[in-house]
């Protein structure tokens, strides 16, 4: 596959490491959330046959974590964003 890196343009997916569902961005706060919330965060994922937001790491590149919107059936990639931007937009801070 080819991933269109928002900064570096088209790059071979071989350069990336795949992590999984981009919901991993939404980590609860450990000081306020309990075991249940963390359990949901870590283990409960949807597994769509279709459009899926995923985390990919450009390990053999610029080390950016990316959020890739990819169709798991056709492998079509419709959107690639810097995960840092997505995380900030979702209100993640320090």
């Amino acid at each position: 596959m080819i991933i269109h890196h928002p900064i570096l343009g088209p790059r071979d997916a071989q350069e990336f490491v795949y992590l999984g569902d981009a919901s991993l961005i939404d980590r609860p706060d450990g000081m306020t959330a309990g075991v249940e919330a963390f359990h949901d965060y870590l283990y409960n994922r949807t597994n769509p046959a279709g459009e899926h937001q995923e985390l990919w790491y450009h390990e053999q590149g610029d080390r950016s974590w990316l959020v890739v919107t990819r169709n798991t059936v056709t492998h079509e990639i419709t959107k690639v964003e810097l995960a840092r931007d997505v995380a900030r937009a979702r209100g993640r801070t320090k």
């Binding site: 961005i25 980590r27 985390l55 790491y57 950016s64 974590w65 995960a83 840092r84 993640r92 320090k94």
Partner: peptide
């Protein structure tokens, strides 16, 4: 060494992007 570095980048960019 490699997986820890990857994990730290994940924490830095994705979990706590304002640090």
């Amino acid at each position: 060494a490699v997986t820890v570095f990857r994990h730290l980048e994940f924490c830095r960019q994705v979990l706590w992007p304002e640090m």
